[in-house]
Amino acid sequence: MFENIGGFIIDLDGGFFKDFHILPGGKDFIETLKSNNIPFVFLSNLTTKTPDELHEILFRVGVYIEKDQIITSSVLARDYLKENFPSSSVKVYGSKALKSVIYQEYKIGVVDADIIVIGMDPKISIDDLSNIRRHIHEGKKVIFTNPDYYTPTLRGYDFECGLMVELFKPHLREEPIIIGKPSKYSFETAIKKLNVPREYIAMIGDTYETDIKGAHDFGLIPIHLQTASDDSYNTLKLDAYEYKNLEDLCIAFKSYV
């Protein structure tokens, strides 16, 4: 398997760290890739931290990468908007980090926006939910950051944006636009960044529904890490190369390179 790999797309939240604590083997794996000049990017559905914040977190624990090697669904949402709706106005419901990324390019404080961007925010209010429902009733275009129902933490799982998708999907007039993995836009962005033929790219992640499904859908080599705390997190089962964690994967990869 390793002889066919020329680049890696790596999931961050759940595969590489939990609650921003690096999981076993993470640092060693990145150093192995760097020392062998193997290109890689992180592709994450996380929206609660900006790429700058994630870069700083990784830097503090000795994982030295470039900022543009971190692709989050916040960045994907911003770039998708710029490419497809450059002159539209945008209203964001989500975390402080999501708002920071989107409002780098779009005016903040627009009341009657053309497009609504929705991500998970632990502090979202009933008023926010009511306003989103009103925007949908008015026919506004809606973009969701990611389809995950849960995000892994050291204490278990927290709710994620997929629950917002399920809440509002019955009220939408068209199929929702969901930017994060396993969307075509997310994987095509990462593949383009690596500049490696897709059949030589491996996707490493802990979630069948997003990481491994995306690998299957877009012709990548699927590598599943068994770092999920319980089976309810992975309801979809797909063929993949299986490893307990990045530490085991790194040991196997080192024996090849």
Results as ranks from 00 to 15, higher is better:
residue 65 I to F: 04
residue 183 S to L: 11
residue 250 C to S: 12
residue 231 D to C: 00
residue 230 D to L: 01
residue 39 P to C: 05
residue 27 K to N: 08
residue 123 K to G: 01
residue 243 Y to T: 02
residue 60 R to G: 01
residue 119 G to S: 11
residue 148 D to I: 10
residue 46 L to H: 15
residue 42 F to M: 07
residue 197 P to L: 05
residue 241 Y to P: 00
residue 87 S to Y: 15
residue 232 S to Q: 01
residue 237 K to D: 12
residue 76 L to V: 05
residue 116 I to V: 15
residue 100 S to E: 15
residue 178 I to R: 02
residue 105 E to C: 14
residue 251 I to C: 01
residue 186 S to H: 02
residue 139 G to E: 08
residue 165 V to A: 04
residue 59 F to G: 05
residue 164 M to G: 06
residue 147 P to D: 11
residue 181 K to P: 05
residue 74 S to V: 03
residue 54 L to G: 03
residue 139 G to V: 07
residue 148 D to V: 12
residue 42 F to S: 06
residue 193 K to V: 03
residue 157 Y to I: 10
residue 23 L to V: 11
residue 199 E to C: 03
residue 187 F to K: 04
residue 76 L to K: 05
residue 124 I to A: 10
residue 81 L to I: 03
residue 172 L to V: 10
residue 170 P to R: 14
residue 183 S to A: 08
residue 152 P to A: 00
residue 196 V to K: 09
residue 169 K to L: 07
residue 200 Y to V: 00
residue 225 L to W: 00
residue 54 L to T: 05
residue 32 T to N: 13
residue 165 V to S: 04
residue 256 Y to P: 01
residue 148 D to H: 10
residue 191 I to A: 09
residue 29 F to D: 03
residue 256 Y to H: 14
residue 250 C to R: 03
residue 256 Y to D: 01
residue 70 I to Q: 13
residue 85 F to A: 06
residue 237 K to F: 07
residue 69 Q to M: 10
residue 101 V to Y: 11
residue 103 Y to L: 13
residue 18 K to M: 11
residue 48 T to G: 02
residue 200 Y to F: 10
residue 253 F to V: 05
residue 93 Y to D: 11
residue 230 D to K: 02
residue 22 I to W: 10
residue 135 H to W: 12
residue 136 I to K: 07
residue 188 E to H: 13
residue 128 D to P: 09
residue 245 N to T: 01
residue 154 L to W: 07
residue 71 I to E: 04
residue 92 V to C: 12
residue 142 V to M: 07
residue 37 N to M: 12
residue 168 F to R: 12
residue 152 P to F: 02
residue 37 N to P: 06
residue 251 I to K: 09
residue 184 K to A: 13
residue 75 V to S: 15
residue 48 T to C: 06
residue 252 A to N: 13
residue 157 Y to D: 03
residue 207 T to H: 03
residue 100 S to G: 11
residue 103 Y to A: 11
residue 213 K to I: 01
residue 92 V to N: 14
residue 161 C to I: 03
residue 198 R to L: 01
residue 9 I to V: 13
residue 210 T to M: 09
residue 227 T to A: 04
residue 180 G to N: 12
residue 172 L to N: 11
residue 160 E to F: 15
residue 129 L to K: 07
residue 229 S to M: 06
residue 192 K to W: 00
residue 125 S to R: 13
residue 224 H to E: 12
residue 148 D to K: 10
residue 221 I to G: 04
residue 219 G to Y: 07
residue 190 A to Q: 10
residue 85 F to E: 06
